[in-house]
Design a protein around this nucleic acid. Structure first.
Lengths: 240, 240
DNA sequence: CGTACGTTTGATCTTTCTCAATAATGGTGG
DNA sequence: CCACCATTATTGAGAAAGATCAAACGTACG
């Protein structure tokens, strides 16, 4: 369940078992529902067992910005374990199963087991690295590059969890949400997707994105997987 | 020296002493020099004792994006302690003093002292929170708001370290760098600054920014200090 | 005192947004 | 199973924010 941690850090069998022994409560959540809202005071840490979710903020003007997309296996809420008030909301994208872990036992575990602590720091740092890349994406790339880049990122992250094949993947969000993630409008995202398609870089059937020229897409999106800091054993097939 | 940690987390005297006992080497660095470059493999963790620095990436097209500004007292390199390869560069803005801490003793310390581990996680999470706000700033706010927001952020962060008064502060960077931080061009940043000045929100003498209408600036910048997750004892005078 | 760097200003051009309308698509209840 | 509704996707035309290009002006510093 906490395979997120395991995927970057080698934990001892002992440590693994300790993680598995954590008390959890499973919940099903529907698309559009909020796991937590900005300003809430969280009482537990959640893991996204299955389904997709986004981290988002809303500006004073009312526009939304998505800062991260959580994929199955992600631990969502370390922030909320240590920081008092949530600085952003987490919204469910697709029908999801969430495992809630109460605050105290997890804190205690981190206190007792430095290897798990280190794994949490590690995972948090990778998240920060992805955030830095998003700042670049949204701050310094044009619309084509932004969209291409985010598609590349999804492909690689999903493949590492065996949720995508080398062919392509099912995009778990609407074009409007893609726009909120790239700092564009949905209209423009639509035009960019169309142009990427007519130029033969991708093909689409509904939300399924197929990569017809991965190399070129990567180029346009200025994408390099370095910032994802994946351990070699993350890379299942290394198509990308 | 590691007052960054102390400022959010209450550590025992024992833990504090352990941090102080860490072996360090001091270095002076000049503006423009790099503490680390993207792709480097770091061997130590650094603390910015005095001076300013930025985290930045360069896109394939050659434009720069600044993702964070480090202020005196910041621990700069936890990322590099856990992640193998640096995903971004750190460049010095003003004449700075850096304290290098070798990797091993620090890792050992974290392993032995869970409270320090927790403090590191905490500090890393705050950095991530600031990054999320930057994504929003650059993704969903117009030029005026971006510039106003970043000015507000500096003011509050600097004041918390007693490096700014309620009046204003010395901006440690050029308008070009401000542009790289906000995803704009230096020309446009200049125009925005001018307009903020003529409208009486700020006044400038060289790089010194004085707040003549803090409330209005905060409004324009859609700024709220929540995302900085400052403990109450951070807030020295609470001008802002 | 000259040179390099940073700031300021103007004119023009592009990308992307806005507004608006139409077409698909999927889900729902009858 | 089908008709209807709500959401999402697509397309067009015009507007605007910000980029680009170019030049002049300051200011610090050797």
């Amino acid at each position: 369940m906490l395979r997120d941690l395991l995927s970057h850090s080698a934990l001892s069998e002992d440590d693994r078992q300790a993680v598995r022994d954590l008390p959890t409560r499973l919940r099903k959540l529907d698309p559009g529902s909020y796991l937590i809202r900005e300003g809430d005071v969280p009482t537990h840490c959640s893991v996204l067992v299955s389904g997709f979710a986004i981290r988002l903020k809303v500006t004073g003007e009312g526009s939304r910005q998505i800062m991260a997309v959580c994929i199955p296996g992600d631990a969502i809420d370390f922030q909320n374990l240590f920081l008092g008030i949530s600085d952003h909301a987490i919204q469910i994208l697709t029908r999801s199963v969430i495992a809630d872990i109460p605050r105290e036992p997890l804190q205690e575990l981190l206190f007792k087991r430095p290897a798990i602590s280190a794994a949490v720091i590690h995972s948090t740092l990778i998240e920060a690295s992805i955030l830095r890349e998003w700042v670049v994406n949204v701050g310094r790339r044009d619309a084509r590059a932004r969209v291409a880049h985010i598609l590349c990122e999804f492909a690689v992250r999903l493949e590492a969890r065996e949720l995508a094949t080398g062919e392509g993947f099912e995009l778990p969000m609407t074009q409007e949400q893609l726009a909120d993630a790239t700092g564009l409008t949905s209209v423009h995202v639509n035009r960019v997707l169309k142009s990427l398609e007519t130029e033969g870089l991708i093909s689409r059937r509904r939300r399924y994105i197929q990569f017809t020229d991965w190399r070129a897409l990567q180029n346009i999106g200025d994408f390099s997987r370095r910032y994802l800091h994946m351990a070699d054993h993350d890379v299942i097939t290394q198509t990308y």
